[in-house]
Every structure is written in structure tokens, then in C-alpha cells.
């Protein structure tokens, strides 16, 4: 307790405030403990990636002599796969936003009679198991020559993103006052112009949230990587990790280094874009 506080706060209240403060410090300590338990696996992943001996799992609790051999090997073996994942994920973001943003706006503002049916269809589409989609797409992609291709993966990965993006952007766009758009329409802007030059800039935050999640969904995709690629030409990093795990794991530090590299987008977003992540986490599910 500082002297400044003591001067300002009357005596009885001061005692209470002191109690209150120890109490909330206790909560903070407990909260940190819970978080530490929950995030221990993430720590362990980082720790294991820095262990010098590659072949066994005998790891010390702290990486006191960090070795970057695992990372060297991960980048040598999985570097191209990381690039593939990056291209596919960025492609999914662009494609999903292009397709979903106008639809979200239309469902929020155009008052179609069938809006509720459309929303129901989108909700249900989110519930369709990925393996159902993979089963059918494998046959279709085989005929269309889309197996082992980046566009094929982008189109498939967008199934994770598009329903989510529509729902979350619509939830935001429903709050845009019609008068703003109408004012532009009076000035002679068409629907498309009004959308591009007014609605999209206003919706910047929800676009960022939607884009970040589209990226994470696609980056995390494993099912379509597993089923829609058959050669190592186009191979997302999630599949690379799975293949490391396939037989007896011979080099844990390389596996864990790849895992750490694959976690970087999620970690970076959580730290740098916390606001948007929080918005996406609550917005997509219940609305």
C-alpha cells in the first residue's frame, strides 16, 4: 500500500481496500497458475524443439543449452511445405472474403424474403463433417485435375472459412445505419460503388477479424491436405508433421521445431491482434 493511497482513503475503507487488494492478487496468482497448466504443452513444444539430442525424448525441463539443429532440419525439410501452407492460406483469405463479404452485406441489409432460410443453410453447412466433403471432392477433383494443386486446396479450405465469414460479417453489417448508404446512393453511387467505397471501409474491423480466422482455419487444415494431395509437390506443413509422426518418430526436435513454426501464426495473432481474435471467438459461434 502506497502513502498516496493512505492519504486519500479514509481509514476503515482503507482496511477494506487492503483486503480487497490481497484478495485480487490471490486471484491473479491463481489465474496465472491455471494459464500455466493450460499452456504447459505449448511450453513443452518449444522446450523440446530446442533440445540438442534429436533421437530420444529425454529432455531437460529448461532448454539450458538450446540447440537449433531441430530448426535447421525443420526448415530444410519442411521449408517448401511452410511456403505452400502460406500461399494456400493467403489464397483462402482472399477467396473467402471476395465471396463472403458481399453475401454478408446482402443478407444483412437487402431484406430478402428468404434471409432466414439462407442463414439456416449456412449454419447447417458448418456442421457437415469434413470427411463428407473430402470423399466427394476427391472424386470430383480427380476428374477436374485439381488434385495436388494449390487452387484445389484453396477452394476446399474455404469450406472452413466461408460460412464463418458470412455469419460474422453479417452480424457486424446488420448494425450499419442504412442512412449512410442511402446518402451515397442519392449522390449517384450504384450498389456496388456504395458497397466498395462505404460499406467495406466501415466494416474494416470485421473484415480483419474474418480474414484472420480464414487464415488460421486454412493454415490449420489437415483433412484436405491429407486427402486431396497424393504427391509431395504440393504439401501443406500440417501433412508434413503428420508424416513425421507416421512411423516411429526418429527426430523429435525436428518434429517439435516444425510444430513451433506452424504455431507462429496463431501465437502472433493472439499477441498482436487480441482484439480481433476475441471478437471472432465469440461472434462466430452463438450469433
Amino acid at each position: 500500500m502506497t502513502t498516496v493511497d493512505a492519504a486519500v482513503v479514509p481509514v476503515p475503507a482503507q482496511r477494506n481496500a487492503g483486503k480487497e487488494r490481497t484478495r485480487s492478487a490471490g486471484y491473479t496468482a491463481l489465474g496465472i497458475l491455471f494459464l500455466a497448466v493450460m499452456l504447459f504443452p505449448v511450453y513443452w513444444m518449444v522446450n523440446a524443439s530446442l533440445q540438442p539430442s534429436g533421437n530420444t525424448l529425454t529432455a531437460s525441463f529448461f532448454p539450458l543449452n538450446p540447440s537449433f539443429d531441430g530448426y535447421a532440419r525443420a526448415i530444410a525439410e519442411q521449408g517448401p511445405n511452410l511456403v505452400t501452407s502460406l500461399i494456400v492460406s493467403l489464397g483462402t483469405v482472399v477467396f473467402s472474403l471476395l465471396v463472403a463479404a458481399p453475401a454478408a452485406y446482402a443478407l444483412a441489409q437487402f431484406r430478402f424474403r428468404w434471409v432466414n432460410i439462407a442463414l439456416l443453410a449456412i449454419l447447417i453447412s458448418q456442421m457437415i463433417p469434413g470427411i463428407v466433403i473430402a470423399n466427394a471432392l476427391y472424386a470430383a477433383y480427380n476428374d477436374l485435375g485439381l488434385l495436388n494443386s494449390i487452387p484445389g486446396l484453396i477452394l476446399a479450405d474455404a469450406t472452413h472459412a466461408i460460412p464463418f465469414v458470412i455469419l460474422i460479417m453479417r452480424a457486424f453489417m446488420i448494425g450499419i445505419p442504412t442512412s449512410i448508404v442511402e446518402a451515397a446512393r442519392v449522390d449517384g453511387a450504384g450498389l456496388v460503388r456504395a458497397f466498395v467505397s462505404i460499406v467495406l471501409p466501415i466494416s474494416r474491423n470485421s473484415l480483419i477479424t474474418a480474414g484472420l480466422f480464414a487464415f488460421l482455419f486454412s493454415w490449420s487444415d489437415f483433412l484436405f491436405a491429407l486427402t486431396l494431395t497424393t504427391t509431395d509437390e504440393v504439401r501443406p506443413v500440417t501433412l508434413g508433421i503428420y508424416q513425421y509422426l507416421g512411423t516411429q518418430v526418429s527426430n523429435w526436435s525436428a518434429v517439435m521445431a516444425t510444430a513451433v513454426l506452424s504455431s507462429l501464426p496463431a501465437i502472433a495473432l493472439l499477441i498482436l491482434a487480441q482484439k480481433y481474435v476475441a471478437a471472432g471467438a465469440t461472434g462466430g459461434a452463438v450469433k
Binding site: M38, L39, P41, V42, M45, L216, W219, S220, F222, T238, I241, Y242, A259, S262, S263, A266, L269, L270, V277, A281
Partner: peptide
């Protein structure tokens, strides 16, 4: 944990 790729 929710944001990490499941395979990771």
C-alpha cells in the same frame, strides 16, 4: 490451444 493447428 484452440487456435493452434490440431495436428500440432
Amino acid at each position: 490451444p484452440w487456435l493452434l493447428p490440431l495436428i500440432v
